Amino acid sequence: MRQEKFMFALRLAALVAATLATGLIAGVFYAYATSVMPALNRTDDRAMIDVMQKINVVIINPWFMIGFMGTVGFTVLAAALHLGKEHRTTLIWLGIALALNVIAFAVTSGSNVPLNDQLAAAGDPAQIADLAKVRADFESAWVRWNIIRAILHTLAFLVLSGALFVAGIQHGRAQASGSAANQQVSQAQPVPAGVQTAGQPYRAPIMAQQYAFRSAAGQYAAHPAGAQHLG
Score class of each variant (00 low, 15 high):
residue 212 A to T: 07
residue 179 S to P: 00
residue 207 M to D: 13
residue 169 I to M: 09
residue 177 S to L: 14
residue 168 G to V: 11
residue 181 A to C: 02
residue 177 S to A: 15
residue 172 G to A: 06
residue 213 F to E: 12
residue 188 A to C: 05
residue 205 P to A: 02
residue 203 R to K: 13
residue 187 Q to R: 15
residue 212 A to Q: 12
residue 170 Q to H: 07
residue 222 A to S: 11
residue 196 Q to V: 09
residue 229 H to Q: 11
residue 181 A to S: 07
residue 193 A to T: 06
residue 218 G to K: 10
residue 221 A to R: 15
residue 226 G to E: 08
residue 173 R to Y: 04
residue 224 P to W: 00
residue 182 N to E: 10
residue 209 Q to T: 07
residue 194 G to W: 02
residue 191 V to N: 03
residue 180 A to K: 13
residue 166 V to A: 02
residue 189 Q to H: 06
residue 190 P to Y: 04
residue 214 R to P: 00
residue 176 A to F: 05
residue 226 G to L: 14
residue 198 A to M: 13
residue 184 Q to H: 06
residue 198 A to P: 02
residue 170 Q to D: 15
residue 189 Q to N: 03
residue 164 L to N: 10
residue 231 G to S: 10
residue 191 V to D: 01
residue 206 I to R: 15
residue 183 Q to Y: 00
residue 220 Y to K: 04
residue 164 L to D: 00
residue 206 I to W: 11
residue 209 Q to E: 12
residue 203 R to M: 14
residue 196 Q to F: 10
residue 174 A to G: 14
residue 189 Q to T: 11
residue 222 A to L: 07
residue 174 A to E: 14
residue 175 Q to S: 08
residue 204 A to H: 04
residue 209 Q to A: 15
residue 216 A to K: 06
residue 227 A to V: 00
residue 178 G to W: 08
residue 212 A to H: 07
residue 222 A to V: 01
residue 210 Q to I: 10
residue 221 A to D: 01
residue 188 A to V: 06
residue 182 N to H: 07
residue 191 V to T: 15
residue 191 V to Y: 02
residue 225 A to T: 03
residue 228 Q to Y: 05
residue 165 F to A: 12
residue 189 Q to F: 02
residue 210 Q to M: 13
residue 231 G to L: 13
residue 202 Y to M: 08
residue 171 H to A: 11
residue 219 Q to L: 13
residue 215 S to Y: 01
residue 218 G to L: 10
residue 184 Q to A: 15
residue 199 G to S: 04
residue 185 V to H: 07
residue 188 A to T: 04
residue 219 Q to Y: 01
residue 218 G to F: 01
residue 169 I to P: 00
residue 163 A to P: 03
residue 183 Q to M: 06
residue 213 F to N: 09
residue 224 P to R: 05
residue 189 Q to S: 01
residue 185 V to Y: 05
residue 164 L to Y: 04
residue 195 V to S: 06
residue 169 I to W: 10
residue 178 G to E: 09
residue 191 V to C: 04
residue 229 H to M: 12
residue 213 F to D: 06
residue 218 G to M: 11
residue 231 G to W: 00
residue 194 G to N: 05
residue 179 S to T: 11
residue 211 Y to F: 03
residue 181 A to T: 03
residue 225 A to K: 11
residue 204 A to D: 01
residue 227 A to T: 02
residue 199 G to Q: 05
residue 208 A to K: 13
residue 218 G to Y: 01
residue 223 H to L: 02
residue 202 Y to I: 03
residue 227 A to I: 01
residue 181 A to H: 06
residue 198 A to V: 14
residue 197 T to I: 15
residue 175 Q to N: 12
residue 177 S to C: 01
residue 184 Q to E: 08
residue 230 L to R: 08
residue 211 Y to D: 09
residue 195 V to D: 00
residue 208 A to Y: 02
residue 172 G to V: 03
residue 207 M to E: 14
residue 198 A to Q: 14
residue 212 A to E: 11
residue 178 G to H: 09
residue 229 H to A: 13
residue 164 L to A: 04
residue 166 V to H: 00
residue 204 A to M: 10
residue 199 G to P: 00
residue 228 Q to I: 10
residue 168 G to C: 05
residue 184 Q to K: 14
residue 178 G to D: 13
residue 200 Q to M: 14
residue 178 G to N: 13
residue 190 P to Q: 04
residue 176 A to I: 08
residue 220 Y to E: 03
residue 213 F to P: 01
residue 214 R to W: 03
residue 173 R to E: 13
residue 185 V to I: 14
residue 177 S to I: 10
residue 191 V to H: 05
residue 178 G to T: 07
residue 184 Q to S: 10
residue 182 N to T: 08
residue 207 M to R: 15
residue 178 G to Y: 08
